[in-house]
C-alpha cells in the first residue's frame, strides 16, 4: 500500500521542479496543480478521506483564483545569473540535498512503524471519542472538541490572510 506512494511522490517532485523552472507564469501555476492533485491521491491511499476532500476542493478553487489573477498577463519570469554564481548555487544545492537525505535516513530509522503512534493520547482519542463527545466522525470530534484551540488558531490564520489580501490589494494607496 505504502509502496504505491513512491511514483506519486516522484510525480509531485517533477511538478515542483517544472513549476520552478518554467518561464511562463500560467504553466507554473498548472504545474503546481499537479502537486495538489497528486497529494489528494496520497491522502486517499493513506485512508484520510477528510483531508482528501479538503485538498481536492481547495486545490481546484486556488487554481481557479490564481489562473483568474494571472490570465492575460504578459509577465515572464526572467532568470538571469552569472555562470560562476550558477556553479556555486548548484554545489550548495547538492550539499543541502545530501545533508537532507542523510538526516532523513537517520530519522526514519528512529520513528515507529506506520499505524502505531508513539503518543498515548491517540489511543485515548480512539477509545473515548464517541462516548466523550457523541460525534461519530472522529476527526470532527478531535478538531472541534479535544483540540478546539487548534481550530480557533486555524480560523484566525484564514481571517488574517483575508485581511492581508484585502489590505494589500486595495484601491487606495496604489498610485
Amino acid at each position: 500500500m505504502v509502496s504505491a506512494l513512491i511514483p506519486l511522490i516522484g510525480l509531485m517532485i517533477c511538478g515542483a521542479v517544472i513549476a520552478l523552472e518554467t518561464k511562463d507564469l500560467l504553466s507554473g501555476i498548472i504545474s503546481l496543480g499537479i502537486i495538489g492533485f497528486a497529494l489528494t491521491i496520497v491522502f486517499l491511499i493513506l485512508q484520510a478521506p477528510d483531508l482528501a476532500i479538503v485538498q481536492i476542493i481547495i486545490e481546484t478553487l486556488t487554481l481557479i483564483i490564481l489562473i483568474a489573477a494571472v490570465l492575460k498577463t504578459t509577465i515572464k519570469d526572467s532568470i538571469e545569473s552569472l555562470k560562476a554564481r550558477k556553479v556555486i548555487l548548484w554545489v550548495a544545492g547538492l550539499v543541502c540535498v545530501a545533508a537532507f537525505i542523510f538526516a532523513s535516513l537517520k530519522a526514519f530509522a528512529d520513528i515507529s512503524a506506520f499505524g502505531s503512534p508513539v503518543l498515548r493520547m491517540a489511543e485515548y482519542y480512539l477509545s473515548n471519542g464517541v462516548t466523550g463527545t457523541g460525534a461519530v466522525n472522529l476527526v470532527a470530534a478531535i478538531i472541534l472538541d479535544f483540540r478546539a484551540y487548534d481550530t480557533l488558531g486555524e480560523a484566525t490564520v484564514l481571517f488574517t490572510s483575508v485581511a492581508g489580501v484585502v489590505a494589500v490589494l486595495r484601491k487606495k494607496g496604489r498610485t
Binding site: 470532527a140 484564514l158 483575508v162
Partner: peptide
C-alpha cells in the same frame, strides 16, 4: 454531539466568506 455541529456551521460561514472575499478582491 453538542456544540460540534454549531462550530461546523460557524467555520463554514467564515471559510465560505473568506475565500469568496479573496477571489472578489483579485
Amino acid at each position: 454531539s453538542g456544540i460540534i455541529p454549531l462550530c461546523n456551521i460557524a467555520i463554514g460561514v467564515e471559510v465560505a466568506a473568506a475565500l469568496f472575499a479573496i477571489f472578489i478582491t483579485f
